[in-house]
Design a binder for these strands. Structure first.
Lengths: 339, 339
DNA sequence: GTGAAAGCGCTAACAG
DNA sequence: CTGTTAGCGCTTTCAC
């Protein structure tokens, strides 16, 4: 509904109104508007100009019903507070939104935790979306199972256990291995690792990459300074304490959140970076870039990640064939924190 | 669509299928499912059990069309990169999603910049949402104007220029005034201020609150150490440099992003907080809480802000009457950075 | 090139 | 308490 200049409320004008006003059939108007089917140049112009003048806007709901298609895509983002602390998900979402908008799709978000995917379920069961993007892949991935069972097209950002799922990802293992071996070759002797929740596949890959980096340099990682599953700040703190008791040259963290915490801890103890200990992170962020000193890290284009996921999903929805696994680039940013 | 145990693809079952199978009319089935209208206990159970057994799920699109209602709400979040750096918008979004889900509404997001609100327009014009939540209020608020013109129910988070718009907000001016006067009364003499983009109303209120804090203490603020419209990191840096040339006891920043930058700058110059200069922020964040020392700041429950906005909008959509302006609480967190 | 009619799946009078 | 009927607004055969 909208108002005219007198402030009266006007009901939305429908295809029927246009047809009657122009003495045409709904069919013709529909064809003129959608551009599908043959309509004479004259009538098309007539319809189009009338539509513009009277501000006719096709009702997407009705179109959806007729098409059995919603032109919506669902995006699942983690609802936990920790996830809100890293800009990753918001950036992915922005990337998805931008691409979706350019294809005339809208984006529905479902906030889900590891244990509660009810809003994803509602959205899918109610037929509110044509497909779904998962922004985090889990070891026990109930969203993936649900979507497969419901036979809904979906794309996972990150690596999935399910080998048939379409995924858009970085080669995390390669990136982490690359960074680790660069650091080793720079002459750093003893490197500690702190990675987060192992339920998130990405953290497993970070560990794998770390180990592979050592392997490639014909070195063996010291298991006593590797801390996996550090899913909370106290756990990070405790890892740091233990690390500082050993004679460690460098700490690599799984992500920016952990890294931030490590840096705070080091500052509290007046330990200088990189003077007394070097620090690097397997995931970059604004904060790490602006730290003093800036932190060596792996950089990925998260916005593009979202965009590619959206493009892929839309192709999938439209029945196109897509690559089962799309790998995006990464880059290693060597900064002062490891010199 | 879903698959049965043999992997065959089953078409979705509709209300018609249920009706035929049970030898009832669509109406009766509809009533049994929706719970509206009188149906005998017996037939209701019959329908319900058949529905469950055959996994019948009503099609939300069809219901939308019949109701002329989508059961979706739109949320506009800023698409600019800076906004992605603060968890504010993601938290608000989570709050909205949670509340919306509990009322069986879904959430569509429109990423919009100050200059491009095309995705908001699409979403509204296509009738994809019943109402909209704006998560940031602007001085020149094209979203507000558009929504008023389209006669779509909407709620603004933050203070709006438009006096008729429904808004959910904190009393920013009061909060900032409160914090400022507390600091003054603690004996701090010279206080500098750095606030961001004045296009955002919230930054204007922060300035107002700062000034009011001085007034209430019968003091006059020193305009030469007030920096407004510091919308980028270089501008913050330059403000800090100028401040450090004057004899300033304390820097108050408009938000956590600016504060983070100020802290980095101070660290670079080896200026200790609070020893040589005190620091406080008009907006709290995880990072500031975990800083060493923790930063004095204003804390607001952003998740609840989103939730309240959603509740209010849904009430509005349902034709209920709502308060035109809802003020949420804030609290002042006094931390070591200002002792 | 244009139109009539059926239908997408569900809801809501209006009758019985 | 249940069924009939007519839409919601748009798309899409199938004729002319």
């Amino acid at each position: 509904m909208t108002e005219n200049k007198n402030g009266e409320i006007l009901k939305d004008i429908t295809i029927n109104d246009v047809a009657k006003a122009l003495n045409l059939s709904k069919t013709t108007v529909s064809r003129a508007i959608s551009g599908k089917g043959r309509v004479s140049e004259a009538t098309r112009n007539l319809v189009l100009s009338y539509a513009k003048e009277h501000n006719y806007m096709p009702n997407a709901i009705a179109r959806s019903l007729a098409h059995s298609k919603t032109f919506n895509i669902g995006v699942v983002i983690p609802s936990d507070a920790d996830a809100a602390e890293t800009p990753f998900f918001q950036r992915v979402l922005m990337g998805i939104c931008e691409t979706a908008a350019s294809r005339d799709y809208d984006v529905l978000v479902a906030a889900s935790s590891e244990h509660d995917i009810s809003s994803l379920k509602r959205m899918v069961i109610n037929h509110k979306v044509d497909g779904v993007i998962l922004t985090r892949s889990l070891k026990h991935d109930s969203p993936v199972e649900f979507l497969k069972q419901m036979n809904v097209p979906f794309v996972v950002i990150g690596e999935t256990v399910d080998k048939n799922a379409v995924q858009v990802d970085n080669d995390m293992t390669a990136a982490c291995s690359e960074m680790t071996s660069i650091l080793i070759r720079m002459g750093i002797k003893s490197i500690a690792l702190i990675v987060g929740n192992l339920e998130y596949i990405v953290n497993r890959r970070r560990y794998d990459g770390f180990m592979r980096g050592f392997l490639e340099c014909d070195r063996i990682a010291d298991q006593s300074i590797i801390f996996q599953n550090a899913g909370s700040m106290p756990m990070v703190d405790s890892a740091v304490s233990k690390i500082l008791k050993k004679n460690v040259d460098c700490i690599i963290t799984g992500d920016d959140l952990i890294c931030g915490r490590v840096l705070t801890k080091l500052r509290e103890k007046n330990i200088s970076v990189p003077g007394e200990i070097k620090v690097a992170s397997f995931y970059n962020s604004f904060m790490l870039e602006n730290n003093n000193p800036p932190i060596t890290s792996i950089n990925i284009d998260v916005h593009a990640l979202g965009g590619t996921a959206a493009t892929t999903l839309i192709k999938l929805i439209s029945g196109g064939s897509v690559q089962r696994k799309i790998i995006m680039n990464h880059e290693i940013l060597l900064k002062k924190s490891t010199v």
